[in-house]
Amino acid sequence: MRKKDIITLVLLISATLFTAALSVNSDDLKYLVFVILIASGIKFSLIAFQFMELKKAHTFWKTALICFLVIFFGVVSIIVFY
């Protein structure tokens, strides 16, 4: 097992439990939504770049994935806030 993969898994699980706890224990979710979406975006990138080894790929694929992430979470955030 690679050390980086283990660290990634620990970060992923911690972020999942943190966002779930945040959602359950908060009455006003309006601003926490932003934190939850950012945490989800980070988790998404960790899987793609570390587990799927996209970090080794051509810049085109890395850029395409980041563009998808920014557009998706950006659109969701805008709709939720306005």
């Binding site: 690679r2 993969d5 283990i6 990634t8 898994l9 570390q50 587990f51 799927m52």
Partner: peptide, 12 residues
Amino acid sequence: LTSGFFMATTVH
């Protein structure tokens, strides 16, 4: 997520 971690280890 754990399953994904094991998949990455499988490939490695």
